[in-house]
Design a protein around this nucleic acid. Structure first.
Lengths: 235, 235
DNA sequence: ACGCTAGGTGTACGCCGTACACTTGTCAAT
DNA sequence: ATTGACAAGTGTACGGCGTACACCTAGCGT
């Protein structure tokens, strides 16, 4: 009976369960708030117990990234363009489910099997489409992080995010100030000002923007491929 | 005399000096190794003294990013394409001088005046070139982090980095293993295998790759602009 | 019956950011 | 010349972090 309790209380914990719990915790509290101690607590275990299953925190993060990458759907039977497009958009879906994964991928320099596999498959799509090795090389560089379904949105620019922390009249004043200092940003950000000075909108469809950029690149690739572009640097 | 010593020993330290020292220290030891304590030590001061000049570490990082952005050269008088190109490549030079800045920029979500100014100027170049507000909006999204002169190189893929840690025969064996598992990566990465199995090359000109991608996008933008592309979503 | 081993524990160390209360050096107003 | 406000720098302390290291213990193959 005591035995029973103990066995039930401690389904012995393995690497997969640790990673799964880590992913869930990061989904919940974000990446900065994810600590070995907190993860251990969530698993009902003492911090050092985790180290029997992952070498250290870095390796934990690698494992978590691998879990997310594992969620990317495979793509079968399509021209290179559709294949890449679908694969990348699927990667995007996976990363959107785990907002912390983007940052983890950015920071991480380790090439885990899952990372290599995805890369290899995307490369394979271009090669199968008849791209030269040379062009494929540059194309992959150009894709960069977009291969993972994200681009950093450093251009989140507009007023849209420090909303609600200040009274509306202060907001309006700040907007006027910004309009004077950074006129172009405000114009392009899609901020609409009503006659009364209030701010509306700032509508920005991230998915649209992502596909816009992705298709721009794919079209560019297609054009270069069609004209048998070469970097003229051997290979 | 004592006074003299003291005044000379403590040129009183101000925000600019703190940021400057922080940038220098990060250049030297990297971003993860940059701590308030270590920075204070480098300045010959007790850690808490820094807090009279920066609010906290986050604000310090923002300030450091601003210093780097301040190094981006202004661009005057050129068509939009050349102007953007020059500005972005100048940003790239600034970021290359401070390798930590890329990560700092990626992580940071705060929009400091320097960040906004750069963004505003790049936008201004497109608008001055006759781009519609609509197209400019999407174009900026597409540029993304490339506006800052970098793209993450998640595709550093090949064997080229864990060199030298293992004996050459182990290296060759690993390469063979990789060639079997990830054939496409190896082919495209520019790894050349000699008959004796030794690995050479892996030549990759980052600057070339960056300009390849940048020009691909600029050409794409130009084409869309030329045909009066519109997203068909108002604005 | 016994010892090996994998999994979990407990303690401890050195680092981190920073809150808070303090001294001290400078200078303007009295 | 005295004072007192203020900015700059100090010292101590707290809670959190990753993780090294020694230890325990349950279950298993022999």
């Amino acid at each position: 009976m005591t035995q029973q309790l103990e066995t039930s209380r401690r389904t012995p914990l393995n690497r997969a369960r640790v990673l799964e719990a880590a992913v869930a915790l990061a989904d919940e509290v974000g990446l900065e708030a994810l600590s070995m101690r907190r993860l251990a607590e969530a698993l009902g275990v003492v911090p050092m117990a985790l180290y029997k299953h992952v070498a250290n925190k870095d390796e934990l993060l690698d494992g978590m990234v691998d879990v997310v990458i594992g969620e990317i759907a495979p793509v079968a039977g399509a021209g290179w363009k559709d294949a890449v497009r679908l694969r990348v958009l699927s990667a995007r879906q996976a990363l959107l489910r785990h907002p912390w994964a983007r940052q983890a991928l950015e920071t991480r320099t380790n090439r885990t099997p899952a990372v290599l596999k995805h890369t290899d498959e995307v490369i394979g799509m271009f090669l199968a489409g008849g791209f030269s090795v040379d062009l494929t090389h540059h194309v992959m560089h150009a894709l960069g992080s977009r291969m993972w379904g994200f681009t950093q949105e450093l251009f989140d620019a507009a007023a849209g995010s420090q909303e609600a922390v200040m009274p509306p009249e202060a907001q309006a004043a700040m907007l006027q100030e910004m309009a004077r200092t950074y006129p172009n940003i405000l114009e392009v950000a899609g901020v609409a000002r009503h006659d009364d000075g209030s701010v509306v909108s700032y509508g920005c469809d991230d998915q649209f923007e992502f596909e816009f950029a992705l298709d721009l690149m794919l079209d560019g690739f297609e054009r270069l491929h069609g004209r048998h572009w070469s970097s003229g640097r051997g290979q």
